[in-house]
Amino acid sequence: MPAEFRAGERVRVRAGDPAGHTRAPRYVRGQVGRIVECQGSWELADEVAAGVAAPRVEPVYTVAFAAGDLWGEGGHEVTVDLWESYIERAERAERAGEDGS
């Protein structure tokens, strides 16, 4: 499966609360971050934990989030590795609002 996202793109982590195992931490769900890089493609951990015989293989991305956006303070970034199905492109209107245009 080819990677859908490229370094520098802004993405939003899907906000759902799936039943069972997920590797998407609660503190980033619904948050907007920036793709740092693609780490290659790996079996979807959620399906591996559920015992799926042939788990999906998806690109995994390192995504950076401003600590201030996550916790209201901090001048650093937090990076999290996320499977492609956990993220979606950030809305254009949201990006326009962030850059002042």
Rank of each mutant, 00 (worst) to 15 (best):
V13H: 15
W83C: 01
V11Q: 13
P25V: 08
D17N: 08
G72M: 14
C38W: 00
E98P: 03
G16K: 12
V48Y: 09
G51D: 06
A7Y: 05
Y27H: 15
R6V: 09
A50D: 04
E4A: 09
E84F: 03
G72C: 11
A53C: 03
L70G: 04
L44I: 06
V32S: 07
I87K: 06
A45H: 12
F5E: 05
R95Y: 10
E94R: 12
A49N: 08
D46W: 14
V52P: 04
G100D: 06
S101N: 09
A19W: 13
G20W: 15
V63E: 06
P18E: 11
D69E: 01
G30S: 04
A19E: 08
E43P: 05
E84V: 11
Y27L: 13
A15W: 14
V78E: 03
L44T: 06
V80C: 00
A24M: 14
W42Q: 03
A96L: 11
Y61E: 00
S101I: 09
V11M: 12
A54C: 07
E94D: 06
E47L: 08
R26N: 14
A50G: 04
L44C: 03
A96E: 06
P59F: 03
G30R: 03
G74K: 12
E98K: 03
W42G: 02
V32D: 06
G40T: 01
G100W: 04
S101G: 11
A50C: 07
E43D: 07
S85T: 13
R26V: 15
A15E: 12
S85N: 14
S85R: 03
R6L: 08
D69Y: 01
A53Q: 02
A93C: 05
R34P: 05
A45T: 12
G72L: 14
A93K: 13
D46N: 14
G20C: 14
G30P: 03
G30H: 08
R6A: 05
G75A: 14
D17E: 07
A24H: 15
G74W: 13
C38Y: 00
A7R: 05
Y86S: 15
A15V: 12
P55Q: 04
V13E: 13
P18Y: 12
R12W: 11
A67E: 08
A49K: 12
